[in-house]
């Protein structure tokens, strides 16, 4: 144990982090060859959900506004892509950005009235928007495509499962890079100052409403992307994609993974999506039938013992271990 720690210390943590990233990336790239076709599909879907969790991370994790409309917005993105690609007949490369822009525009319309409210009020107002969107999709058969839903054409280069996997992986990486630059920029700092104290930010001359709106609209753009990815992988849409439960799932993936980190949403979405799927096919009747009970218990336990999510919890654990080791070295008695 001590040997590993010494090795780790010789290794500057910067390289360590880079090493982990390269390792994960390499694993992601070789995945379609080492795992089954079914798992490739589950991973593709999980990555799409991860994009959604990352987008919520921008508005909730970094800007501090808990949006519960992201499920509806994801559905809007998915439907926008499906409708533009199938009914309008647009080229794939045109339909995809248009779908994201449509989602961002609807996000703007939702954000204008709802961002005037704060905290729990904002959460409930956005939840109301989600219910409205779902009800509209459920009842407006022309929009939703009725009982047969909306068919989503898969372009010729995305016919294969592995092709879709790499495409979604690429979009996920793109999202990660954009998020990384936003967070590290002045804009990111502005968002975070609103999160920590909105009144103070306002006092220092930041237009908090405009910044919150910007963060929300950018977030909507990416959740639209996530929706389009789900649409492409499934090839088919129905109104349930806009249901508010999906907002809850995105929120759960983000908070259990760890908000305000870039790795948290990835860990949460991929880990939990896989877990839910695994519990379904495990082949033990009790676990299959009661999987949501176990899932609920996991949520409660993780949120009580790791309030900053799995990634936050691991970081905390690591810091704690490091400080203990340091102290022992100096000769202090650990508490």
């Amino acid at each position: 144990m001590a040997g590993i720690v010494r090795l780790w210390k010789k290794f500057p943590s910067k390289y360590g982090k880079a090493g982990i990233i390269v390792l994960v990336l390499a694993l992601a790239v070789v995945m379609p060859w080492i795992t089954s076709k079914y798992n490739v599909r589950i991973l593709t879907l999980a990555m799409a959900w991860a994009i959604a969790a990352l987008s919520l991370n921008l508005i909730l994790g970094y800007t501090g506004q808990a949006s519960l409309a992201h499920g509806a917005l994801m559905g809007i993105g998915a439907y926008a892509f499906g409708i533009f690609a199938e009914r309008v007949g647009l080229n794939f490369w045109l339909a995809l950005p248009i779908a994201c822009l449509v989602t961002a525009f609807i996000g703007l319309l939702i954000g204008l009235p709802s961002l005037r409210t704060k905290g729990p009020y904002f959460a409930i107002v956005t939840l109301c928007f989600n219910v409205i969107v779902y009800k509209v999709f459920e009842n407006w058969q022309w929009l939703s495509g009725g009982i047969q839903g909306q068919v989503v054409p898969q372009p010729s280069f995305l016919q294969q499962r592995w092709a879709r996997y790499y495409f979604v992986l690429g979009c996920l990486l793109l999202t990660l890079i954009v998020m990384h630059f936003i967070v590290k920029s002045l804009l990111g700092l502005t968002f975070m100052s609103i999160r920590s104290n909105e009144n103070l930010a306002e006092a220092t001359g930041i237009n908090t409403f405009r910044n919150k709106l910007l963060s929300f609209v950018v977030s909507c753009f990416f959740v639209g992307l996530a929706g389009s990815m789900l649409a492409i992988e499934n090839g088919q849409l129905d109104p349930t994609i806009t249901i508010h439960l999906n907002s809850f799932y995105i929120l759960i993936f983000l908070l259990i993974g760890g908000a305000a980190t870039l790795s948290g949403p990835l860990v949460g979405a991929i880990g939990l999506y896989w877990l839910l799927d695994y519990m379904k096919k495990i082949g033990i009747k009790g676990i299959e039938e009661f999987r949501y009970l176990f899932f609920g218990l996991i949520l409660i336990i993780v949120i009580i013992y790791m309030p900053r999510g799995l990634v936050g919890g691991l970081k905390q654990l690591w810091e704690w271990m490091k400080s203990r080791l340091k102290r022992r070295k100096i000769g202090e008695v650990p508490e």
Partner: peptide, 28 residues
């Protein structure tokens, strides 16, 4: 009570967990 003092949204997650537990249990 174990969540007291934590961000508002965390209690929301715990509540969703509780919802899943109760609903699944009753339906089971």
């Amino acid at each position: 009570r174990p969540l007291r003092g934590q961000p508002h949204i965390n209690t929301f997650i715990a509540a969703i967990g509780l919802i899943l537990v109760l609903e699944t249990l009753v339906r089971g």
